[in-house]
Each structure stands twice: as C-alpha cells, then as structure tokens.
Amino acid sequence: MSTRPRLESAIEGDPPNFSNVMLHSEKILQKFTDLYAEFWRKSAVSLEIKEMTRIRNARLTDCGY
C-alpha cells in the first residue's frame, strides 16, 4: 500500500491528483477523458447503478473514493 504520493504532479507546485499525474502522458489522459465521458454520458445502465458500483468497487479496493 502506498505510504505517500508515488508520482509528482505534472503541474509544478500543485499537489498530485489523478488528473495532474496522468498529465505526464497527455495523450493517455486525453483518450481516457474521452472514454470516461462517453461511459458516463449514456448507456443501457442507469447512472444510479454505475455510481453504486463505483462506490462499492472503491470500498473493496480501499481507494478512499
């Protein structure tokens, strides 16, 4: 388990978070953002079910979401 942020922010002076760490590889961040937006925008699965599974998954993996 991580005891500290393992990667630095790509934006100098900013505390590391998911987006600014991923920004080290701008192309991957862009494609991930495109995918994630599409995933949440519309689908056969309701937003409530998606959110519930996201929270459940976060708890099981101890990610603190």
Binding site: I28, Q30, K31, F32, D34, L35, E38
Partner: peptide, 21 residues
C-alpha cells in the same frame, strides 16, 4: 458495445501502448 464507446475504448487502449515512453 455501443459504437462510440467501443471506438473510444479502443483509442484509449492504443494510447497506452503507443505513447512511446
């Protein structure tokens, strides 16, 4: 899998492999 979602999923997967780092 909806076409838009599939397209973006595949584009994202490609970016993880061809980013050249």
């Amino acid at each position: 899998l909806p076409e838009n979602l599939l397209e973006k999923y595949q584009a994202f997967l490609r970016s993880t492999v061809d980013s050249n780092h």
